[in-house]
Design a binder for these strands. Structure first.
Length: 182
DNA sequence: ATTATGATTCCCT
DNA sequence: GGGAATCATAATC
């Protein structure tokens, strides 16, 4: 995987990220759930233009955009084209289990990295990672050997543009944060 | 199924 | 400067 991978629209990149391995400081696993956000998308932070918070969402592709959600959690996005990003919603844990359980304070494997807030807590993602390159430490990405089987559906937790099927998940995975309708 | 939690942004006055 | 809204989660009903 190379930086050019992210120089496209999030709606294209998001499904292709399913099956990619993501590690932060050695902890992580397989990305099993993503959502796409576009500049002309009312549910996107970039919809009303650049701001202090969304600065990195307009920065170089292949970098991280981290924001605080509901005042409590962090959420990790991969920046694609300017104002376009992929929200990482769930990971199937593979490495660094003990460290992730320690950071989470829990050890239920099905809830360890399932959900954007849990994922960031388990991987130790904070605002410090905002704007960092995904191709440098502590990040590590590894493309899947074969394209994954991807499910699609409407995005979660938004009130605008709810009809766009811009949520993507690994078919059959029990680690997605919410089941995809059959 | 419902609610407490509680930081930051953004949009208005 | 105020107040609603927010890309969730965990605890409680």
């Amino acid at each position: 995987m190379n930086p050019g991978f992210f120089e496209r629209e999030a709606t294209i990149v998001a499904p292709q990220l399913i099956g990619t391995e993501l590690y932060v400081g050695g902890a992580g696993g397989i990305i099993v759930e993503t959502e796409a956000y576009e500049p002309d998308d009312p549910a996107s932070h970039s919809f009303r233009g650049q701001s202090l918070r969304t600065r990195s969402m307009f920065g170089p592709a292949g970098h991280a955009y981290v924001y605080r959600s509901y005042g409590i959690h962090w959420c990790l996005n991969f920046v694609c084209r300017p104002g376009s990003a992929v929200l990482i919603r769930a990971v199937q844990p593979l490495a660094g289990l003990a460290e992730m359980e320690r950071r989470r304070g829990r050890n239920d494997p099905l809830l360890l990295c399932s959900g954007p807030g849990r994922l960031c807590q388990a991987l130790g993602i904070t605002i410090d990672h905002d704007g960092m390159s995904l191709f440098e430490q502590p990040f590590s990405l590894k493309a899947p050997a074969e394209p994954a089987l991807v499910m699609t559906g409407p995005r979660i937790g938004i009130s605008q543009a709810i009809d766009h099927p811009w949520r993507f998940g690994l078919q059959g995975s029990v680690y997605v944060s919410k089941r995809f309708p059959a």
